[in-house]
Amino acid sequence: MAAIDCGTNSIRLLVADLPEPAAGPQAPLTDLSRRMEIVRLGQGVDRTGRLAPEAIERTRAALAGYATEIEKLGAEQVRMCATSASRDASNADEFRDMVRRTLGVAPEVVTGDEEARLSFTGAVRGLPADAAEPYLVVDIGGGSTEFVVGTRTGGVEAAVSMDIGCVRMTERHLAGDPPTAEQVAAARADISAVVDRALAAVPGRDAATLVGLAGSVTTVVAIAQDLPGYDPERIHHARVSYDQVAQVTTDLLAKTSEQRLTIPVMHPGRADVIGAGALVLQVIMERAGMSSVVASEHDILDGIAWSLA
């Protein structure tokens, strides 16, 4: 099976085999291929309400490579889910037509609620035993952040998607390089108000464990661990404290994009927006009263794959 997650900042592919039934309900998928490209599909959407032609073309080029990989590995089922940017854009039909021509299947522009549920499914399978329930799972994307509360056995109890993400907050508030104190304060105020609304909609403050998903979280956790390079095995299920997240966020927001590029774990396509992503994570931890966060490399992409089972 092949799963594709097309978000505001990146497009990702997972080709995997399902575990054998005898392996049990928490057995992992067998990865055949995981790929990620930064395409910035949501470039300017918060301002213009439209997908930029150059962003659609970047996405098409990445998708063409994925189509070749899917065919080579012989995946029998393909599901592509498109999220925040393609929900918000007035010219989303152009994007959907491009996907049909390139991939051979239509993208599903999932609702925020479905995005949250897929993220939760991908994240909670295989969590370590010391990750106490219930969980607050937060998926910090480029255009939106999903907040999901639930348990491993009972599933999702409540979910909400909010329009805060690393690309959207950077474009809206953090124009400076590095951003000014006034810009950071405006971003923090905006994020705090939205997070408070999210936590009024889902009982996140009652959760025992915060699980963080997507590139902003995994990059912050990698920096907090002072890794010499991006290492998914060391990042997956690593737990870092609020104090570590706050220090990394402060350091990132004080650096220029060029200086962030010198950080060993930094993906070049994330350097200009990682400060906003880190700030979203820090504010969530503050407003939810969480002393630590567990990072997961498994997220909506894995949830899409499991949905094909």
Rank of each mutant, 00 (worst) to 15 (best):
D5M: 00
C6N: 13
A16D: 03
P19R: 09
E20W: 00
A22R: 15
L29M: 05
S33H: 12
R35L: 13
V39P: 05
G44W: 00
V45H: 01
E54T: 11
A55Y: 03
R60D: 10
A62M: 07
A67N: 14
E71C: 08
K72V: 12
L73Q: 15
E76R: 15
E76A: 13
Q77S: 10
Q77V: 10
S84G: 10
R87A: 06
R87F: 04
D88E: 14
A89T: 11
N91E: 12
A92T: 15
L103I: 04
A106P: 14
G112Q: 09
E115R: 10
R117W: 00
S119G: 15
F120V: 10
G122E: 00
A123G: 12
A132S: 15
G141F: 02
E146H: 12
F147V: 13
V149N: 09
R152T: 11
T153P: 08
V156T: 11
A158C: 09
V160G: 08
M162L: 14
A175I: 12
P179C: 02
R188V: 05
R188M: 01
R188Q: 14
I191T: 09
I191C: 07
A193W: 05
V194Q: 10
A198R: 10
A198G: 15
P203V: 00
A207T: 11
A208E: 14
V211L: 06
G212I: 05
A214R: 03
A214D: 02
V217N: 07
V217R: 07
T219L: 05
A224I: 08
Q225G: 08
L227Q: 07
G229P: 01
P232N: 06
P232S: 03
E233Q: 14
R234Y: 03
H236R: 10
H237A: 10
A238K: 11
Y242C: 08
Y242R: 15
D243I: 11
D243R: 15
D243K: 14
Q244L: 06
V248G: 00
A254L: 02
T256I: 07
E258Q: 15
E258M: 04
R260W: 01
L261K: 15
P264D: 03
I274Y: 05
A278I: 06
L281K: 11
Q282T: 11
V283K: 06
G289H: 07
D299S: 15
W306T: 08
L308S: 10
L308N: 10
A309D: 14
A309I: 08
